[in-house]
């Protein structure tokens, strides 16, 4: 049973080559992404970096490059050192005229049971807004992904 991955897309005013460099050249990566000493866009390359995870905790991220197609696709595994679970981050580039669409897919987030501190303050926020908005959107997306 597979879960639907998280997907985010944006069209940038840049060529695929420039975006590829931004996501795969460590000098450029550290200017907007993370400072990753051992990064190389080569299959099998293992790297790690310290970063704040979305739940606000600082984790050592452990990654390994799985796919690398210059100017098109970069995929690596992504897990948190000392914690269970493993996920996959994929960057895909699509040329659109003089612009480029970047699609980021993050699969396997559901394998991170330890990353939590969910609920709490949001608990009180109310069920109505939750079911009407965030969850609704999430479910719709799930549905459309499935039927697509």
């Amino acid at each position: 049973m597979k879960n639907e991955p998280f997907v985010i897309e944006r069209t940038f005013n840049a060529s695929p080559e420039r975006i590829w460099k931004a996501i795969s050249d460590r000098e450029q990566m550290k200017q907007w992404y993370f400072d990753i000493a051992a990064f190389k866009p080569e299959i099998g390359n293992e790297f790690e970096f310290t970063g704040t995870s979305p739940d606000g905790t600082v984790y050592v991220h452990k990654c390994k490059v799985i796919e690398s197609v210059p100017n098109k696709k970069l995929k690596y595994s992504w897990r948190y050192d000392g914690h269970p679970g493993n996920s996959f981050v994929t960057f895909e580039l699509f040329a659109e005229g003089d612009k480029t669409k970047l699609r980021l897919t993050h699969e396997g987030l559901e394998t991170f049971p330890a990353i939590k501190d969910f609920a709490k303050e949001n608990f009180a926020k109310g069920w109505t807004s939750l079911i009407g908005t965030s969850l609704g959107k999430f479910l719709e997306k799930q549905l459309s992904n499935k039927t697509a």
């Binding site: 940038f12 992404y33 979305p54 980021l104 987030l109 939590k116 939750l130 965030s134 999430f138």
Partner: peptide
């Protein structure tokens, strides 16, 4: 748990995309 957890990653990646956009 469903929505917050997905939202956390959405926030994270959105901010990274913002940073990338600025960098480009």
């Amino acid at each position: 748990e469903v929505s917050n957890w997905v939202e956390q990653y959405r926030t994270f990646w959105t901010s990274k995309f913002d940073a990338l956009e600025k960098f480009l």
